[in-house]
């Protein structure tokens, strides 16, 4: 804790004669700006300008850009369509329609997984909410659309691709290298459950399997849209 200071008392209320002449102050000001110019010319690295697109700003590993859906080793999506990201999204921009995956270990899979980039506010809540390590963000910010329809990204454009990661790199994600988190076990490596592991084959053999909830989620964008029409 400390006191209160009067800032106006520190600075003389009236200007001196020289300052009121105005020209000396102009030259003093010019000297300040000119110093910057000369220093920049002598040492171009001092210049703050980033020559985008040739040169890119070095964003951190936490940058929140375009989303990607992570894949298992066999190329299927890690997502099990649990609707948690759709629920956590403040913009309600994620639409998921779930389907039952033939392989038991994979539980469900998203038949539709759409992110409306024209609604998304890039807050990263979907990444925080995902319990399956299925959705990450990248450092890809180079997006511009000519129509609103092409801004709805479906699975094809969200699926992780090596080319995209090589070009931009991972951004915001649930864990970072070196923070001690063990990623969840890849379901494609899990031992095959009870027989073939194929759901239909097991059902035919009379094994009682739980029915998964498939279809649109409880709170996805389409049902929200109905609630919020103007």
């Amino acid at each position: 804790m400390s006191g209160v200071i009067d800032v106006s008392a520190r600075i003389p209320d009236r200007l001196t004669f020289w300052q009121r002449l105005y020209l000396p102050e102009i030259f003093r000001g010019m000297a300040v700006t000119l110093r910057h110019l000369v220093l920049n010319v002598v040492n171009p690295r001092r210049m703050p300008t980033i020559q985008y697109p040739e040169q890119k700003r070095n964003y951190s590993a936490r940058f929140r850009g375009k989303h990607i859906l992570k894949t298992r080793e066999d190329g299927t999506l890690k997502c099990v369509a649990c609707y948690m990201c759709a629920q956590a999204c403040p913009a309600e921009c994620i639409t998921i329609v779930a389907g039952e995956h033939p392989k038991i270990a994979y539980e469900k899979y998203p038949v539709v997984f759409d992110i409306d980039m024209m609604r998304c506010v890039f807050c990263g809540y979907c990444v925080d909410a995902c319990p399956k390590d299925a959705i990450w963000m990248t450092r890809n910010y180079e997006m511009a659309f000519f129509t609103r329809e092409e801004a709805v990204f479906s699975i094809d454009r969200l699926r992780e691709s090596k080319a995209e990661i090589d070009a931009h790199g991972y951004g915001y994600r649930p864990y970072y290298p070196g923070d001690g988190t063990t990623p969840p076990t890849d379901a494609s490596r899990l031992p095959v459950v009870a027989g073939s592991g194929e759901r239909d084959a097991l059902r035919q053999a009379g094994v009682a399997l739980p029915n998964r909830h498939v279809g649109a989620g409880p709170l996805n964008a389409t049902s929200q849209a109905a609630k919020f029409t103007a």
Partner: peptide
């Protein structure tokens, strides 16, 4: 041109201008 982002980074806007 529509630019996504909330707000878009400056690069994103420049990208849109280039488009």
């Amino acid at each position: 041109v529509y630019v996504p982002g909330c707000p878009p980074t400056p690069e994103e806007l420049i990208y849109a201008i280039m488009q």
